[in-house]
Every structure is written in C-alpha cells, then in structure tokens.
Design a protein around this nucleic acid. Structure first.
Length: 334
DNA sequence: AATTTCGCCAACCGCCAATCC
DNA sequence: GGGATTGGCGGTTGGCGAAAT
C-alpha cells in the first residue's frame, strides 16, 4: 500500500504540469470516480480523470476502477474451487493473469496475481521442500505440472483424487465444476494421471455424472460452435457484467473467452474438426488411459511429454481455442 | 508492553501494442 | 510514415496490520 499523500506527478499528455496524486485513494476520490463511471460509463481514461475532477492520471483511474470499484467485483477469500481453477489455468496460461482473470468472474488479474504470488507460490515452495526430501525432484519449478502436483494436489489425500470428486454424485460441487474436474482427468494439461478405472459421462452443457461405462461426451456441436457468441458476461473489457456468484452453493459460471480465442473457436467450428476431436476423445477415453482431448493442439503434446514447457514456444491462439472447447472453460448456466 | 518479522495486497512502474493525428 | 497518446499487462514495491518474539 502506498501513502495517500499526494506526490508531484506529471501528466504525460499534458504540457501543463499538473499535480497528480499518487498513492492510496481517498474515499472522496473513490466516490468521484464511482459516480462518474456510473453516470457516464467507460470512456477515455484521461478524460474520465479530468472530468471526474480527479487529480489522478487516467491510468490510475483505470486501475482503481478495475481492481476495486467496479460493481461486479467479488471480494473476499478465494474458494477452493477458484483456487483449483487458478492453478489449472496457470498451468495452461502461465503468468497471463488477465487471461486467467477473464475466466474467474469477479476477480481481477491483480488479485489473482497477488494470490498466486503469496499463497500458491508459498504452498508450492513448501511442497517442493517436502517432496525433495522424499524423492528426487527433477522437474523444473517453472513447469506448471510441477506446480500442480507439488503445489495444490499433494495436500489432498492419496485416495482423494480429482476424479473421485467428480464422480461423487453426492458432491456438493456444482455440476459444472464437477464437469470441470472430470474433464480434468483427461485433459492433456492435466498433471493428474488417471487413477480410477471408472469413466465419466460428461455432458458439456454443464452436467456430469458417473457411469460405469466408457466415457461419453454429450458434446453439443451447437454449443461449441456458438459458444463464442452465446457466452455472455465477458470480462474482457472489465465493463459491467452480470454478477456472478461462485461457491459450493451456486453454479460456477465461466465467462466467455476473449474475442481472439473465440475467433478460433469459430474457426474450429468446422464439423469435421469437431468430429475428429470427438472421435479422438471417445477412442481414448476408455477409463484406462487418459483422453487425448486435444490431439490436434499445436505443439503442445511434445512439451508435455517429459519436456519442460517453454511458454514462448506455444501457439497460444491455437491452444486457447482448443482449451476453449473444453467444457469446463466454457460453461453456461442454463 | 514494546519491538521485530512477516504476509497481504493496493498501487506504481515500465514495457508493449494499438490507435490517433 | 512517424511521433504522440492511450490502454493493457505483468512485475515489483512498499505500507499496513497481524503474528511472533
């Protein structure tokens, strides 16, 4: 936190040297900005700062709005589900906090970043210390798989694997979260190896249930194809969105991926591509081996096969497009 | 009770890309 | 085409409060 004392600053875009405040925002400033935003909506942040009568730079106003004032923000501690999701998304996206935040309604990139850097990293560190004493750990700590395995999952009991959670019909987790967890079982990003012989029936529309048979994907092509346009509440621009509630007692809603990713979804809407994927999925998902949900991911497979992931090498657009096709990243609450 | 240490997190900084003029 | 401006992002800083000593 910063001292609220005003510090001399210079507005880049203004030749008149204006005293720009820095540091903590006062309640009065908050009120001014909030009132202005609610009345006039989002616009040019420099203008907002000026017109709202704030001696702040536009950037500062933007940050304050995004991280603190916007009404759809969810305050408070991260739920275990959110925590899980953050770890999972981080394993895919790395430090792309804004991308991760876009999938956690009501959370900001800053919040998630702080949470990661304090809580999760610390936990990872502790777990690495534990594992390094019990078994040699050859994995790079930057390897998200290592993060997943060492960071969050180890505290779980050995028998309490993700899959058992998802097939437990008595679980209090919302169906969509169950779906997320169940698909995680077969996600090539998923560091959790399949531990059960049972297979899941996965309804991509957000319900998951256990079956004794081989896994089936009730994958609605319409849903996948139209997912981009249909998913409301994108946080991409941090504008006003419908409020989300996340927790054990409520449904987990995941907002749409950002436009670019959806372009890829739509590009992938080619039925043949979908069919190919589904055939792949069904073929592999027999309960004894992991599903190759994203066989056609660009360049991913090799990275996950014993090599440390190097983020820069990934085809992120392709990756996100395909990740978007995974149900747990594109739920819609009916 | 006083002091020190530590964790959290709000906010700043610097960089980059897109857009404007 | 090129400089200026703006918006967005990730990394980092540093103050505050709680916990430990």
């Amino acid at each position: 936190m910063r001292k609220p004392d005003p510090i001399m600053g210079k507005d880049k875009g203004n030749n008149n040297k204006i005293k720009l405040r820095k540091g903590l925002w006062s309640p009065e400033e908050d009120e001014k900005l909030m009132n202005y935003m609610l009345t006039n909506g989002q616009g040019c942040w420099s203008d907002i700062a000026r017109n709202a009568g704030l001696q702040r730079c536009g950037k500062s106003c933007r940050l304050r709005w995004i991280n603190y004032l916007r009404p759809d923000l969810k305050r408070g501690a991260f739920s275990p589900q959110e925590e899980e999701l953050i770890v999972h998304l981080h394993s895919i996206l790395g430090n792309r906090w804004s991308q991760i935040a876009a999938r956690l309604p009501g959370r900001t990139d800053n919040e998630i970043k702080n949470f990661w850097n304090s809580t999760i990293k610390k936990r990872l560190k502790n777990n690495n210390a534990i594992t390094s004493t019990s078994s040699p750990n050859t994995s790079d700590s930057s390897d998200p798989r290592a993060i997943m395995l060492g960071g969050l999952m180890q505290p779980m009991q050995a028998e309490q694997d993700v899959f058992s959670i998802c097939v437990d019909s008595s679980s209090s987790s919302p169906p969509c979260m169950q779906a997320m967890l169940s698909i995680t079982q077969g996600n090539p990003f998923n560091p959790f190896p399949p531990l059960h012989d049972s297979a899941a029936y996965l309804d991509i529309n957000g319900s998951a249930s256990a079956t004794g048979a081989a896994g089936l994907y009730n994958l609605s092509a319409a849903h996948v194809g139209g997912g981009g346009g249909g998913s409301a509440g994108s946080l991409g621009d941090y504008g006003l969105v419908e409020p989300f509630v996340m927790g054990l007692e409520s449904d987990l809603s995941l907002p749409a991926l950002e436009g670019r990713a959806f372009d890829n979804i739509n590009a992938a809407n080619d039925q043949s591509v979908l069919d190919k994927r589904l055939v792949h999925n069904n073929h592999h998902f027999n309960g004894n081996e992991s599903i190759k949900v994203v066989d056609d991911f660009v360049g991913i497979g090799n990275h996950w096969n014993g090599e440390n992931l190097r983020m820069g090498e990934l085809d992120w657009e392709g990756l996100l497009a395909n990740v978007s096709s995974l149900p747990y990243l594109d739920f819609q609450v009916e």
